[in-house]
Structures are given as C-alpha cells and as structure tokens.
C-alpha cells in the first residue's frame, strides 16, 4: 500500500484523509499486511468457507406486499427534498 493506492481507496470509499492521517493509515496497513502473512501460514487448502456461523437454508418470505411507512415520515430527515423526492446536486450522465 503506497500513498497513491491509498488515495484511490479513499476515493472509492468517499473519504479524504489529511496527510498526517495518511501516514498513520499507511503504517496501519503495513501492520495488517504482516497479519496477512501470518494468516498465509495456516493451511486452509481443503477447508470450506464458513459464511454463516449457524447455517440454515431457504429462509424465505412469501410474496405478500404491505406498505406501512409514509413518504412524509421517510423524507422527514432528508437534508434536501422536493415534491416527494430526495434532492441531490444534478447528476451528469
């Protein structure tokens, strides 16, 4: 991880660090890359991934519609809204 990669990463995650924060972040990432080396020592060749700690299957709902929330309530905390829409700076195509 170098400063340029870090800038890309900041951009991707909509964050902007100060130069001092970047220095700390680079040190943090260096330590984490050492973590990855440590993890690489563990043989996981024939180990199945575990996404869910208490696995179940087919947790599904039936196709029934309901509409309990009002638009006014949902928009009430919007910084900017207009005519029942959230409003943002114009998105250029």
């Amino acid at each position: 991880m170098d400063r340029e990669t870090l800038l890309d990463l900041e951009h991707l995650n909509q964050l902007s660090l100060t130069p001092q924060e970047q220095d700390e972040m680079l040190a943090f990432f260096a330590a984490r890359e050492a973590d990855w080396e440590t993890l690489a020592q563990i043989d996981t060749e024939n180990v199945e991934r575990m996404v869910h700690v208490r696995p179940m299957v087919n947790v599904l709902r039936e196709d029934v519609a309901s509409q309990p929330f009002s638009r006014e309530d949902l928009l009430a905390q919007a910084p900017e809204s207009m005519d029942g829409y959230w409003q943002v700076p114009q998105i250029l195509q």
Binding site: F29, L39, M50
Partner: peptide, 24 residues
C-alpha cells in the same frame, strides 16, 4: 478503508476468503 482493501479483487482470496476458512 481496511474493510474495502480486504475485499479488493487482488486481495479477496488471501484476505476475506482466507478469513472465512479460518472461521471454519
């Protein structure tokens, strides 16, 4: 930032996927 980095295509296998196997 760290969470985003471990999911980057180049890191996924050695980070996120690895962690899922270590969880097992």
């Amino acid at each position: 930032l760290y969470g985003s980095e471990v999911l980057a295509t180049d890191n996924y296998d050695r980070c996120y996927d690895k962690a899922l196997r270590i969880r097992r």
